[in-house]
Nucleic acid binder design. Structure first.
Length: 265
DNA sequence: ATGGCTTATTGTATAAGA
């Protein structure tokens, strides 16, 4: 039996909303040491680029590109391999919030996204989320033409189905699960993207985020809102996709935990 | 239970996250 680690050529890509890289850098370095993925996409770095820990990441063997801002948002791609054609944001969509960064790694277009949370259905932030998702859809349509081998990793702030929510009845109509958000997610899939986690059998009640409050993690009151979408060309290469809950058990964890995709190439 | 944690801020209470 082949095990994943014995496959001749694999590329591992992961995504992790770290909720402040300033606070979480030790966790990230620790995690990379035991999970030496090829690519790690980060969201919510919450720091300006001048504070980004390029040196520490370089010492750990990673190139890094970052688009950050103080206090909020901020996205980065770490890679063991050279990155090319780095781009920032969604082309043609003016946005002061730093939520998208892209780069090509080993011939694969890697897009790291931190999709808007939306706060509540009746808020202006939710309207912004809808506009943002519309723009993302339009942009990805063009990106897929340009880069057939494409992967979109990040915090989507959308639980695509009821099984991605610990208590669907309690969450009906709420942000993260509302019908318009889920319709947007389906529209992304309609572009020819696949939710790589669902290409495989998975444990029931698999989540990637748990509320800090109410002992959410201990009770597994979570949501699956961090996703890795792959293009048609990459779909046959998907070997496994898992959620690694280990970092969520650490002292002072991020409220999100990493999702990892392994490609056989 | 409109709370409950955690992070960051020209902070000592507020905003935001999800």
């Amino acid at each position: 039996m082949l095990t994943p680690t014995t496959l001749p050529n694999t590329l591992k890509l992961a995504t992790w909303n770290v909720n402040s890289l300033n606070v979480r850098l030790p966790h990230v370095l620790e995690w990379l040491a035991s999970n030496p993925v090829d690519v790690l996409c980060l969201q919510e770095t919450k720091q300006e680029d001048s504070k980004f820990p390029y040196a520490e990441l370089s010492a750990a063997g990673y190139h890094a590109v970052h688009d950050g801002q103080k206090t909020y948002n901020g996205v980065a791609i770490l890679s063991r391999h050279e990155m090319e054609d780095v781009s920032y944001g969604i082309t043609g969509f003016e946005d002061v919030q730093k939520r998208v960064i892209s780069a090509t790694v080993q011939g694969i277009r890697v897009i790291c996204v931190y999709i808007v949370n939306g706060q509540s259905i009746d808020s202006e932030k939710y309207a912004y989320k809808m506009r943002w998702l519309e723009a993302l859809h339009g942009w990805l349509t063009a990106e897929l033409q340009k880069y057939p081998k494409l992967v979109v990793l990040g915090d989507y702030n959308i639980a695509p189905e009821d099984r991605d929510c610990h208590d669907p009845a309690a969450w009906v109509g709420q942000v993260l699960v509302s019908a318009p958000e889920r319709a947007h997610f389906q529209q992304l899939l309609s572009l020819g993207l696949y939710d790589s986690f669902r290409l495989f059998d998975q444990p029931e009640k698999s989540f990637s985020w748990w509320d800090y409050r109410m002992m959410g993690f201990r009770r597994n009151f979570g949501m699956r809102i961090d996703h890795i979408l792959v293009s048609e060309a990459l779909k046959p290469h998907c070997h496994q996709c898992i959620i690694d809950k280990a970092p969520r058990k650490l002292e002072r964890p991020s409220d999100h935990t990493p999702v990892i995709l392994e490609l056989a190439i």
